[in-house]
Design a protein around this nucleic acid. Structure first.
Lengths: 159, 159
DNA sequence: TATTGTTATACTCTATAACTATA
DNA sequence: TATAGTTATAGAGTATAACAATA
């Protein structure tokens, strides 16, 4: 099988080792994301807004009103899927659709006062559970490592 | 609104600041996990096995045969949900159910040769896309940060 | 013609509820 | 009674296909 003896420690300077470690990290990262996603979905179930919806609300808060197509591209879903998300948010009174000033095909999605309030409130509450978990289960240095990694993960997720 | 002036830089020693940063990290981590999950699901669609299924296969490979209830607990899903996952894996020929030696209620789920082969193959291939992305979009030091963070994220996901 | 938004429909994953068999 | 597994059913989220309106 041409296996490397696992008792020989990895040489950090060996480019083959580096590539293998990168693949291992990638594989493990995928599984962790999958596991964590199930966790978070369950934890935030029944809170009124799903994570996908929050992601859209925060984006609108950050970037201002956007069209369905823009939002779908940013959120990495199809416009039809995002249309459903926006439909749910609109039904909850968090966003509204308005006509585009110059292009009659487009609709502009914007936060309502209630939507803005929801974003601010969520920011304030910190969505408790995961923050608590980090405080309890990670040492300060580990918390910093995670804090450094998160923007890198976002870069990967948006690529 | 009692807002802190955002132009004043955060004091790393201020415990309130630390708590706020932790909440911000937690909130952002949730959204990134959600976004990344969509990404990965889409990327691995049609590959035959889903991420949740791979997670079970790898666990069986690592820990040996397990019952449905054990697997469900480890994977943070209900036994009924895991039963469906195992059903799909069994239909694909990756696992088999056998009677428990002493407890007639239990069934023991074990990898087939095909299942073991699939795990090894996946290990080998490194599931390309994300590893490529990390290699292209992250500097070596950033790759190390992510590699350090992944086990911490697993700790959070399994808590 | 191409683009934007929408409706209709289906599939995957996970949940709850209810049942059977065994301990 | 309690536990392990299963079946049936429902809901959330996302996909594809098809269509109308507008550029």
């Amino acid at each position: 099988m041409d296996m490397v003896d696992p008792t020989v420690p990895a040489d950090p300077a060996d480019p083959d080792d580096a590539a293998r470690r990168l693949r291992d990290t990638a594989e493990e990262l995928q599984l962790v994301v999958s596991l964590m996603g199930r966790h978070l979905r369950m934890a935030s179930a029944g809170s009124g807004v799903t994570l996908g919806q929050v992601s859209v609300l925060k984006r609108l808060d950050r970037e201002g009103p956007r069209t369905i197509t823009d939002l779908a591209r940013a959120e990495k879903v199809r416009p039809q899927s995002l249309n459903a998300t926006v439909g749910a948010l609109q039904a909850g009174g968090y966003v509204e659709r308005a006509a585009h000033p110059t292009d009659g095909r487009r609709k502009v999605i914007a936060l309502t006062d209630r939507g803005r309030h929801a974003v601010a409130e969520r920011q304030e509450a910190g969505r408790g559970r995961l923050a608590d978990l980090m405080a309890r289960r990670l040492a300060p240095a580990e918390q910093r490592t995670v804090a450094e990694a998160v923007p890198l993960l976002r870069r990967l997720a948006e690529a």
